Amino acid sequence: MYDFLNDYNQTVHPHLLKNFIDIADKKLSGYGLDDICDHAIESIKKQLKSPKADIHFMPGGTITNLTVISHILRPYQAVIATDTGHINVHETGAIEATGHKVLTVQTEDGKLTPELIKPVLTHHCDEHMVQPKLVYISNTTELGTVYTKQELKKLYQFCQKNHLYLYLDGARLAMALTAKDNDITFPDLAKYTDVFYIGGTKVGAFAGEAVIFNNLSINQDFRFSMKQKGAILAKSWVVAVQIKALMQNNLYLELGKHSNEMADKLKTLFEKAGLTFIAKPQSNQLFVNCPTQLAEKILAHYAVDNLGQTDAKHIGLRFCTSWSTQDEEIELFAEQFQTWLA
């Protein structure tokens, strides 16, 4: 059975593993205060063209989100997200557990716009309600869609005008930056967000993300928040050595592009079969409407995400390809898929 369930089911990219072996005999300082972390930080700043960025290494996405968001917000403030946003659906109420409400907005494509946020600001008008202060987005979104540069810029400018902070979850940032419809670059992220993170877990790393503060008015004492939330690793270089390797020789973007290309092959297969998509296919996540009998056959033979009935005759399935997905695996699925269609 091949696993199309997620993009972190392979252990680690060989190049990253080699970097671990290369430092096996080194003695390193702890808590992110070592040469490897320093070098990784410089490599990220070079990509961003932002020498003043404040960068920290974190073990995973959920702890990154809860640490960043709870650090920025005051006790009476809230974060705005889409109804499909990761902090709303897949983090076990982590944000609420820190004392901050998640204000959700329903969207069709998983993306936030100023027009969707305005009613939230209008509704939360006084001290009898939580105060919206942070806008949370992800790129790619939880539906696999991507923001354009103009959309990101417009959203950031809206946030500035309304005294909101903009935070971008970059768990699948490599896939977003290499999507066919993308025109955002690393320097754009430094310019049009207050804080974002570069995800490694879903792009070939054992685990780990790099948080980048572009707005240096909100990062004061962030390491205290990290320590309190259990987000400072004694061996922070475990994350840094991987992020540094991903930033070298365009590896990060190459792996994201490969993930997207594998999904594009599946997209073509589904389109030829006349299947439709729940969300516009733009990256390595495909949300497919499958006739119930076909979906049941797929689920019996492949690990994919079952989204449940989308209507009386269809089941929604999510296919997720990764940096490690091979052409042969797609071809084998295509052969089996064609027999089921017949």
Rank of each mutant, 00 (worst) to 15 (best):
M175W: 01
Y165W: 11
E261K: 11
D221H: 13
A171Q: 13
K244E: 15
D188M: 04
L266P: 01
D264I: 03
L189A: 04
R223G: 00
H163N: 15
W237H: 15
V203I: 14
V146S: 10
I198C: 06
A174D: 08
E254S: 12
K267C: 15
A171E: 11
P132L: 04
L134W: 09
Q160P: 12
S217A: 15
E209I: 10
D188G: 08
L255Q: 08
S217P: 06
P132F: 01
A171P: 09
K153R: 12
G230W: 06
F213N: 06
K191E: 14
L251P: 11
L255S: 06
N219Y: 10
A190Q: 09
Y252S: 11
Y167M: 13
K153A: 15
Q242T: 12
V239K: 07
Q157Y: 11
L168F: 04
K267Y: 14
K180T: 12
L189V: 05
K267D: 12
K180P: 09
I198P: 02
L166Y: 08
Q157N: 14
Q160T: 12
K149A: 00
V146Y: 01
L152D: 00
L177N: 01
L216I: 11
N219G: 13
Y136R: 01
Y147N: 00
D221S: 11
D194E: 12
K133Q: 10
A179L: 03
K153D: 12
T148S: 08
F186C: 11
R223I: 05
S259K: 03
K229L: 04
A176Q: 09
A240Y: 02
A174M: 06
K227D: 05
K257R: 07
N219C: 15
G256P: 02
F222C: 09
E254A: 10
L216V: 14
E151Y: 02
G230K: 01
P132C: 03
D221T: 05
M262E: 04
A179E: 03
A190Y: 09
Q160L: 15
I137M: 02
G256Y: 03
Q242L: 09
Q228L: 13
I137H: 00
L164Q: 11
I184A: 02
N249A: 07
Y165P: 04
R223A: 04
M247D: 06
L189C: 10
A210S: 15
L134T: 07
G170M: 01
F206W: 14
P187S: 05
K235L: 07
F224N: 06
E209A: 09
E151R: 02
I218E: 06
V211F: 06
K267N: 15
L216E: 13
F224I: 11
A263E: 14
L155G: 06
T193V: 12
M247R: 09
N214K: 09
L168S: 07
A179V: 05
A179N: 05
M175S: 15
Y165N: 10
I218Y: 11
D264E: 14
N219T: 15
Q157A: 08
V211M: 11
T193S: 14
G200E: 10
A245W: 00
T201L: 13
K235V: 08
Y167A: 10
L164V: 12
Y197S: 05
K202A: 15
D221G: 04
G230T: 07
G204E: 06
Q228R: 11
D264M: 09
L233S: 09
N219H: 15
T268E: 06
A240S: 11
I137E: 00
T201W: 07
A171H: 07
T185P: 10
